[in-house]
Structure formats: structure tokens, C-alpha cells
């Protein structure tokens, strides 16, 4: 990747690109946003339609615990992917199963998992601070472009392609199942399979976005883009397109703010996406008034 970074840096020095692009970490960050926007934007409107916002929050906390487990297993500080993927996938399967079979309301059950994984993660992190400088775990909590490596970018691209391909293959069934489960079943969709399938896709996407957005804030980027898109979209297709566009502009805007003001990337991305949400809300309100 070094010749590519050198070429981009050269373009930045000639003034054809913003000056900040002379740093490889920022190029990696921008490429990450380019990959993340279609994944998270594409999943976002299904997350909202399937009412899985709280589930996404619980997954973020589970990822934090996964990081801690990975580090305790001896994985590298900068890429504890075994712990993250392993724990998050297990937590996902458990959450979906319990949600499907228990008689308690789903948000109550997810709340239990949320609290459990957070408590476990905190205890493990306290253990970890005896082995690591605690500042180094901050990047996992809040996201940091500086910790993204070429390996992370490659993983993001691979997972992006896999998630994108699977999502496209099952999109119609997923959408129908989200809107009307009995109708989807009659149309041949396997609801149980789709529920686990979507949860696993969401888990994979959240885990690969952690280093950029952070464990505590990742749910914002799988919920707010769809919420913003819903304010301006007029059809299912435009809902999807707006979700992706909002995720991209929030990611790129957050990246710029994070670099300019030296604040955590996750926080900057969330501020950007929230700003876009309120702008779309204002647009929607104005449109309604003009119709009336």
C-alpha cells in the first residue's frame, strides 16, 4: 500500500487533494468510510424497520467485552479479532434465541444482555489495566483512525463484500419479513433463518467498524442514518439510498472534524450524523408545512 499512499500524498502536496491526505492514516480512514457507508447504511434501514436499535447497542457493549477477552487470550492489542468476533457472534446467537423463545418483552431481555456484557467487559478491562496502559484501550471505546492498519482495511473490505453480497441475495425476503412476517412466511421466506441471518450480518458489520467508530458509539451509525433517511425518503429504494448517503456524509464529515479538532473519530461521526438527522427533520417539517 505504500506506493498508493505516496501517490495520494503527492496529490495532496500538489494541492489536488486536501492537505491532510498526506498522512496514510487519514487515507485509510477515508477508504474505511467508503466501505463502511454502504454496509452500515444498507443495514441501517432494516435495523430500524426490524426494531433492532437496542440490539445494536447491546452488540457494541458485547464487542467491548470481546476485546477484553481477546486481549486476555493474548491477542495483539491492536487487533483482538478472535475475541471480538467470537464473543459477539455467541452473544448474538444467545440474544436472538432468548428473544424468540422467552415470554418477556424483547427490550427487557436485550437490556439484561446489555447489562451483563457491560459488567463483564468492565471487570475484564480492570484486569487488563494491570497488563496494558489504559490509554491504549481508549481507542477501542471511542474509535481512533490512528489505530486502523492496512490489515484492518483489508478485513473491512472482505467483510464488506461478504455482507453486501449476502444482503443483496436476501434483501427482498429480509425487507418483506421486516414489514410483514406472516406474509413473508407465506411467500417462502424462512423467518427464523432470516432473524439469525440478519443479526449475524449486523454483528460482523459492527465488529469491523469498531476501530473507527468505537464500541460505545457504533450503534449510532446503524440507527441514525435510517432515522435521517426516513425524514426525506419517499419510497423504499430512496430510503436505502438516503441511508447510505447519510452514513457516507456522516463518516466523511466526522473524519474531517476528528482530524481538524483532534477529537475521537467515533464522537465526531456521531455528532455529524446527528446534525444530518436534525437537518432532515427540519426539511421534513418544512415540506409538511408547505403541503398544508
Amino acid at each position: 500500500m505504500t506506493p498508493f499512499y505516496t501517490w495520494i500524498a503527492d496529490l495532496a502536496q500538489r494541492g489536488w487533494l486536501p492537505g491532510d491526505f498526506q498522512y496514510p492514516f487519514l487515507i485509510r480512514g477515508f477508504l474505511s468510510v467508503l466501505v463502511l457507508a454502504p454496509i452500515l447504511g444498507g443495514l441501517s434501514h432494516l435495523v430500524v424497520t426490524r426494531r433492532m436499535a437496542f440490539f445494536s447497542a447491546a452488540l457494541g457493549q458485547a464487542a467491548l467485552t470481546g476485546v477484553a477477552i481477546g486481549l486476555l487470550l493474548g491477542e495483539p492489542l491492536n487487533s483482538p479479532y478472535g475475541g471480538m468476533f467470537g464473543f459477539c457472534l455467541l452473544a448474538t446467537l444467545a440474544m436472538v434465541y432468548v428473544k424468540r423463545r422467552a415470554t418477556l418483552p424483547p427490550d427487557t431481555l436485550i437490556g439484561v444482555f446489555h447489562a451483563l456484557t457491560l459488567g463483564l467487559g468492565l471487570c475484564l478491562l480492570v484486569l487488563l489495566t494491570r497488563q496494558f496502559n489504559v490509554h491504549q484501550v481508549e481507542s477501542v471505546l471511542f474509535g481512533s483512525l490512528l489505530t486502523v492498519t492496512d490489515g484492518d482495511l483489508l478485513l473491512l473490505v472482505v467483510v464488506g463484500i461478504v455482507v453486501g453480497g449476502l444482503l443483496v441475495r436476501e434483501y427482498n425476503h429480509l425487507l418483506l419479513d421486516s414489514l410483514n412476517r406472516p406474509l413473508a412466511s407465506v411467500a417462502g421466506a424462512r423467518s427464523i433463518y432470516l432473524e439469525y441471518f440478519f443479526a449475524v450480518l449486523l454483528t460482523l458489520s459492527i465488529v469491523v467498524s469498531l476501530k473507527i467508530i468505537g464500541a460505545l458509539l457504533v450503534e449510532a451509525l446503524v440507527v441514525v442514518p435510517a432515522a435521517a433517511a426516513r425524514n426525506v425518503a419517499s419510497s423504499t429504494r430512496s430510503y436505502l439510498v438516503w441511508s447510505i448517503a447519510v452514513a457516507f456524509f456522516a463518516g466523511a464529515g466526522g473524519l474531517a472534524v476528528s482530524t481538524k479538532f483532534l477529537v475521537p473519530t467515533g464522537g465526531a461521526v456521531v455528532l455529524a450524523v446527528s446534525t444530518i438527522f436534525f437537518v432532515t427533520l427540519a426539511v421534513r417539517t418544512m415540506r409538511r408545512r408547505s403541503v398544508m
Binding site: L73, G74, N78
Partner: peptide, 18 residues
Amino acid sequence: VATTVGGGASPSERNLMP
């Protein structure tokens, strides 16, 4: 974990950020 932990990098190197 078995194939990545302990292979190549020393414990000090594993704790380094990029």
C-alpha cells in the same frame, strides 16, 4: 488464536499501536 498468538511478534511488539 492458536495460530496468531505467540507467532512472530514479541509480547512488547504485540502491545504497540500502529
